Computed example of a mutant assay.
Amino acid sequence: MDSEFKNFDDIRKAVARLPSPDSAAPSVARGRDATLTKPTGSLGRLESVVFHLAGWQRRAIPKLDAIHILIFAANHGVTAQGVSAFPAEVTTQMVANFRRGGAAINQLARLHDAALTIIPLELERPTADFTSAPAMSEAECLAAINAGAGAVPESCDLLLLGEMGIGNTTVAAALTASLLGGNAKDWVGPGTGVGGAALANKIRVVEQGLRLHGDSARDPLEALRRLGGRELAAMFGALLEARRRSVPVLLDGFVVGAAGAVLASLNATGLDHCLAGHVSAEPGHRRLLEALGQSPLLDLGMRLGEASGAATALGVLRAAVACHAGMATFAEAGVSDRDQGR
């Protein structure tokens, strides 16, 4: 918006002044929907998706011409604890793959004509291992938040957020446990594919981090700083900036949801501009969506990250908008409506 956040108090002030959706545009959209050549409610969630987009885009017939996907990448010191099936250097290697166009998200972005931007965040400098120290200083956390907020495009009909960071499901589990309660087992899942003794170790690592930071992480921004990572902080910043600009957001999986939980913990309406694209196979994601009051559009057993689930759900949003904008009304089609057919 006008300037970067200088401190956590700046963020708290911004979160206290979040805009609401327009009420007139959804009302007009509902009026149009009632005249379309179909029984009322027969398109199910496609109809509610349109009303949601209308409110945040502040137009009665939503558009999906300018879709932007932002992928934030970062490294985590906690990987030294053996929490991932892949080494930390894979983060940098996958960023290179994104830039070459070789990842799943590249294909999905191309399919949906969405702009894709890759934003690495100090890959050469991982966060601290949260089992022995806060992951970030306040200055480091603010830098990542501002990077995310600054990456939101000026013109955007819909924003999708994704991430890449070996170890980030461990970080997401620790952060959600701190924000939403429960124990490590409630939130820790296989991530890149760990199981057995490796999964037990991952649970132990999250428990250790929660014990170390304890009451100090009760504040959502402190939880993000102490247990989060740069890509989660950046996604939090992008979610906040999108809300301040009234840009609707399509959420991806567990890690993006953990970043969203920070905003929701600061303001109960913080994620009202968001739709959940899918529910991940990562076990904690379904629990997280329930806690956030979000109902996923898709349930395909995906757990890749990198905004791939949200990008797959783009097809649902495009279907919703196409039907709303393109269908004929009963009058235009010369079809008797329900009242006329009595």
Rank of each mutant, 00 (worst) to 15 (best):
V247P: 10
P248F: 06
L250P: 00
L251M: 12
L251P: 08
L251T: 11
D252S: 11
D252G: 06
D252W: 07
G253H: 13
F254H: 11
F254S: 07
V255F: 03
V255G: 04
V255R: 12
V256N: 04
V256T: 13
A258D: 05
A258H: 10
A259L: 14
G260K: 12
G260N: 11
G260R: 14
A261D: 01
A261P: 03
V262G: 09
L263M: 12
A264I: 10
S265K: 15
S265G: 13
S265P: 12
L266Y: 08
N267W: 15
N267P: 10
N267F: 08
N267E: 13
A268E: 15
A268P: 11
A268W: 14
T269R: 15
T269V: 06
G270N: 09
G270I: 14
G270R: 07
G270F: 05
G270A: 14
L271G: 10
H273E: 14
H273K: 15
L275N: 05
A276V: 07
A276Q: 04
G277H: 01
G277S: 09
G277M: 00
H278F: 01
V279D: 02
V279L: 09
V279N: 05
A281N: 13
A281I: 02
E282D: 11
P283I: 11
P283K: 07
P283V: 12
G284A: 14
G284T: 08
G284P: 12
H285T: 15
H285Y: 12
H285E: 02
R286W: 06
L288P: 11
L288A: 06
L289T: 03
L289I: 04
L289P: 14
L289H: 08
E290W: 02
E290Y: 00
L292C: 04
L292S: 02
G293Q: 13
Q294M: 15
Q294A: 15
S295Y: 00
S295A: 14
S295W: 04
S295F: 00
P296T: 09
P296Y: 05
L297P: 00
L297Y: 03
L300I: 05
G301M: 07
M302V: 01
M302Y: 03
M302T: 00
R303E: 10
L304M: 10
L304I: 10
L304A: 06
G305I: 01
G305H: 07
E306D: 14
S308Q: 09
S308D: 02
S308M: 00
G309I: 01
G309D: 00
A311G: 01
A311L: 04
T312G: 09
T312Q: 09
T312N: 08
T312I: 13
A313K: 04
L314T: 01
L314K: 03
G315N: 08
V316D: 07
L317G: 07
L317N: 01
R318T: 05
R318H: 05
R318A: 08
R318C: 09
R318I: 11
A319Q: 05
V321L: 02
A322Q: 10
C323N: 09
C323A: 02
H324I: 00
A325I: 01
A325T: 01
A325V: 01
A325P: 08
M327L: 13
M327V: 03
M327N: 06
A328C: 13
A328G: 05
A328P: 12
